[in-house]
Amino acid sequence: MRLIIVAGPPSAGKTTLTRQIINGLQNKSKNKNKVSYLKIDVVRAFEDEELKKEFGIPTKKIYSGDLCPDHAGIMVLRDAVVWAEENESDLLIVESAGLCLRCSPYVTEGLGIVVLSAISGTNTPLKMGPMITLADLAVVTKIDLISQAEREVFREKIKEVNGNIDIIETNALQGTGMRYLMRIVDSLSDIDKEKVMLKGEPPLGVCTICIGKKDIGWQNHFGVIRRLKDADYLYRGD
């Protein structure tokens, strides 16, 4: 079974892109390309019901609540792979909540896609850290809505963050540029369940705020703590 993890900020076009992938695969062959879909979100999500209705595929969702959704995703991924195998799927697509810019949901096997909306402003890629640096592929959506100049600059900014990343531009509503993505999806090899590992270093549980202590000010906390004047970055993963 193949695995795709789709990350990116809310409303970037993750679900729209997922629809295009499923559509592309189903157009080729319904029997050979069975997809299972898992949505991870914080409080509410509707994608699983929508995609189940639209494509007749097995779908699931989990809410991470107070836990970082990327951590929640990693926690349940093994179960999800087993679930998708039981569905006899040949592809599992996991759509992340895309809220946490410190973490990234990508794993060492399969394909990690970061979805970025071209209308989010040309500096956005610079703010996204591991969600871009650890992705295998960046898909830029909503190119139908912005000027040529901004499209070109947006692409340069992604390259600035991750010089090696493959970039696909798309109007995800129309499915432009999908031929390249589908080629990559087709060429994916099956994952080895035993080898799947989280790609990034999770900056998890580094201080007493992480475990629920609510007082403000570093004076009240233990662990990795910083004063305002200490550094540009309050904490940087080692």
């Binding site: 209308i119 040309t122 139908d144 912005i146 000027s147 100049a149 499209r151 696909i168 531009e169 540029g177």
Partner: peptide, 24 residues
């Protein structure tokens, strides 16, 4: 060639619609 579609700076086509905006 593929880069015509994949790289906007190599693309020999400019497309302007009612929806295209300058947002910067």
């Amino acid at each position: 060639p593929e880069e015509y579609v994949r790289d906007p700076s190599k693309k020999p086509i400019a497309s302007i619609t009612q929806n295209t905006q300058c947002l910067a």
